[in-house]
Design a binder for these strands. Sequence first.
DNA 1: TTCTTTATACTCAAATTGAGCATAACTGGT
DNA 2: ACCAGTTATGCTCAATTTGAGTATAAAGAA
Lengths: 323, 323
Amino acid sequence: MSVTQTEILIELSTAILRHHNDRLECRLVGEAEASLSKRLPFGPFMPDQHRTMEIGLRHWVREQVGVDLAHVEQLYTFADQGRHASGEAAHIVSVGYLALTRTPEQTLESEKQTPAEDGDWEDLYAFFPWEDWRQGRPEILDARILPALDKWLEKEPHAGDRVRLAFGRDGAQWDEEFVLERYELLYEAALVEEALIDQGKQRKHPKPALGLALHLDHRRILATALGRLRSKLKYRPVIFDLMPSGFTLRALQSTTEMVMGVNLHQQNFRRLVEKSGFLISTGRTQRARGRPAEVFRLRHNERTERPLSGLRVTAGRAKPNSP
Amino acid sequence: MSVTQTEILIELSTAILRHHNDRLECRLVGEAEASLSKRLPFGPFMPDQHRTMEIGLRHWVREQVGVDLAHVEQLYTFADQGRHASGEAAHIVSVGYLALTRTPEQTLESEKQTPAEDGDWEDLYAFFPWEDWRQGRPEILDARILPALDKWLEKEPHAGDRVRLAFGRDGAQWDEEFVLERYELLYEAALVEEALIDQGKQRKHPKPALGLALHLDHRRILATALGRLRSKLKYRPVIFDLMPSGFTLRALQSTTEMVMGVNLHQQNFRRLVEKSGFLISTGRTQRARGRPAEVFRLRHNERTERPLSGLRVTAGRAKPNSP
DNA sequence: TTCTTTATACTCAAATTGAGCATAACTGGT
DNA sequence: ACCAGTTATGCTCAATTTGAGTATAAAGAA
């Protein structure tokens, strides 16, 4: 059995997320110079130096970013032709990872300004504005996305059902986990900038782009990351890997809402969390504007491995914060 | 940024599952000759010839196995050193896939003998006897696995909590999704044959092995596949990709039980499925020993993409079939 | 006919979920 | 000190879902 003709190069790319500045943020590297935008932290997998890919990944993250990773999870391996600049000597296979990092410590209201070392953390929803339903249904959906998809569907009617399910039309429910499916459809319909670039077309901005673009397929990896995280929240306690050691229930809820992109019923969220038994009260209390809140911490925080059951949050019919 | 020193070779390996002969079966290839046992269907990824890895995978499956794949899903990419025979020129990275294939058609009770072309399909639980709880708690657990793990834990006490959670001891629930976690623990404790081989130790059968071994890390891929399938059943309707076009509710339940490794409450299963709205009755009926059963088929079977909601089966407290 | 077997139909209580209302404990302004 | 605004926490209640049975229907076998 003969061997590959083109040399294969494995690129490890990581979506590193954190909750900071009251946003869900993603770490980016690279100067926003010439050609295209930023990229995820990444580096080649070098089997001679790294026993496993995760070790390699932690190496690159340590080198490019100065953060401790709380949770690391392999997402998907992409090897599509055409997603990477062709004409290169090697064929690039890209292995995407999701990593979560804990908020340093109690971000007090007073010191919200970003410290200098913070480098390049971008609001995750800047890449996917249609995924954030916390203020209600995003206008961009009805104003631009669905009309554009409808126009595309005239040429590609076979995709009608996929659009219907991914974007929750005609009775189908909006499923917040289908982040990747939605992004892929927008890519296929050439509504995101990366699609135009991959097709070699000029960037003739007929309309402003849908969300910020990223290098190569990095936004696809990011979409996979968000979808996976949203899904995983429901059955594994990964949300705590975004929290500092002590936190209020309100902070936990905000983080959850940020990830899920929807608002939750506060009292029911409290009931859910208390019943789950994950948390234990530190005697402390934290004060802000209203009544001071009890500060909790994770029970089993000695163990890094905690394959427990997750939070089972559901979007429910909670009203958006504002009109 | 320089390039890898060792050449990288990507191997695509697929766990192909089907429900046949009243078993959940996995397709194997390769003569059970010299060194080690069978392997999963596999082949190298050749970027010059296959635009995506999935296309490459379908190519190898078509070449080695003569089945139509209903569902194909990428599982995980393994690149651990030491899991593959070292000393080779290239470093092998192994991308594991799960594929489901539909039972050809109504397997009548009368023709249960395996046709000749059936080649090499092995009972999945031959590899993981501790995962099948349909006849009640497998004896192998208390008879051999847990005692051996306890002995191992004396040397590696740090793994105590992982064992507790994976194998459901001291109040922890047995979670049928933790197939991979359990297999990895058995590997680390050197209780499966692959571990001995990877350590270069002689095969000095002190005790019979735990389950059938496979080539390289193929059993790990298979464990990943079973765990993923068990998990996915609960939120996506993948079970139907193991069914023929028409089937009775009892057949659907049996397949589900086979995958989950537990028995379900028949009346509640029926209620669940009916409420889900996936099925539609063909007027037909199928008879066997008792009252004839209605034959159903999937509603949307025109579409291959059906990101709908899944079955949410729970193990409940159903009693095992027999003592 | 009378068993035996399997399918299907209902019932019922316990648990969970979705939504509110009510109260407590602060801050800030007057 | 008092009041308005804000956030946390406690509790209730009805609708739904779940777990587990009991009852009945429709075959084949004895």
